[in-house]
Design a protein around this nucleic acid. Structure first.
Lengths: 205, 205
DNA sequence: CGACCAGTTGACAGTAACTGCCAACTCGGC
DNA sequence: GCCGAGTTGGCAGTTACTGTCAACTGGTCG
């Protein structure tokens, strides 16, 4: 990874173009994940993905920006979704409960292909380059979530406290996810939820 | 960044070689930091650093492994130092206090050139590539610290709880460091300490 | 229906970060 | 002085990306 460049989704209407784009992107991701799982992320070259998926190299980079984003695409977007959901939660709710609910809702919504999600998660845990990239996205989640959390907290230095709480909660989510993957992704999201709660309990006494 | 390759410090005795090595490495880091601060990390090429510091490109990569490690060298090592310090703390001490003491001791020891440390920290915060690399190192800190913390906690799933606590504590440290840098690195480590405590208090109610 | 235009694609040639290899060197002991 | 282990530097390669531009494609307007 070198740069990180935003690849702004043009948010076009449902034209023939946008449909073709979605199809091609899906094809690329499928091909890439297959190759990554069998050969490893680092041992798979962009050229290989390009050859096997038919798209040109230039278009691949236009779509995804970086090799890592082929795997991690959409992660940033989900952070913003979580922030929106957090804002929608009742203000009386405990911050940690609210965050947990937001995370859960996001995971549920994007859980249409659970199998792929688990394969992606495994890939990340075993690839340092992907871990680093994921950590960067994760920071963007934080930046997205902090305003909503600060508004919820109120008070003198809500901003600082929000930062700390969001960071700690994301740490708990990370720990929980790790444990969940180590356990083989058992029982879908309920198990993840349980791990998250246990992590939070450990942290808060 | 592409690979991450360990660059094992050969831990030689005090020979002419090791002295030369240390001198050259220092020269490289100085040159690099100067260029990074003025032009930015991404806009500075390895060739430039090589030209201005006299070392060959090949040797530079032998020393540092990656461009990022010119800035982040020694970070991993400090994680292991923190783990050792954590093991040495009295078992009766509160986990969070023990961690805080370990972090503080590490920072004090490596605080011989505070000015450079602050410049490095600032550089990291404003460079995505460095943030990602730092996050990866940070994960190695976690792996190093967990066993000591688990031993300290004891009990059924000490391992899992240790993971969660260490992750959350590192999140607090990160938040504190960020705030400290934003405040201009005021008053050295005491201020950082204060931020850390405030973060922990916010997280734990 | 056909010209037109905005947006998209793909080929090409670059750049920058690495990596393997090997010949030349250098320190330290004999 | 000289030998061998360990180190360095140059060179050629690989891989991930990026800028540019000509060719294309789908919708729109006359």
């Amino acid at each position: 990874m070198t740069h990180a460049h935003e690849v702004t989704e043009p948010q076009v209407a449902d034209t023939a173009w946008s449909r073709a784009r979605a199809t091609v992107m899906n094809e690329v991701v499928d091909t890439a994940l297959r190759l990554f799982s069998t050969q490893g992320f680092d041992a798979t070259t962009i050229d290989q993905i390009v050859r096997e998926s038919g798209v040109s190299q230039r278009s691949l980079f236009r779509y995804f920006g970086t090799k890592e984003d082929i795997v991690l695409g959409g992660v940033a977007e989900r952070g913003e979704r979580a922030a929106a959901l957090l804002s929608g939660r009742p203000p009386s709710e405990d911050p940690w409960q609210a965050l947990r609910a937001a995370f859960r809702a996001v995971d549920e919504k994007s859980g249409d292909d659970r199998d792929r999600a688990l394969r992606v998660a495994r890939l990340i845990t075993e690839t340092p380059a992907l871990q680093a990239a994921a950590a960067a996205k994760h920071q963007r989640w934080q930046r997205a979530l902090v305003p909503a959390m600060a508004a919820r907290l109120g008070g003198a230095d809500a901003e600082f406290e929000a930062r700390a709480i969001v960071a700690a909660a994301l740490a708990c989510l990370g720990t929980a996810t790790e444990a969940w993957i180590a356990a083989g992704g058992l029982e879908g999201l309920d198990a993840l939820d349980t791990f998250y709660e246990r992590a939070v309990r450990a942290v808060r006494r």
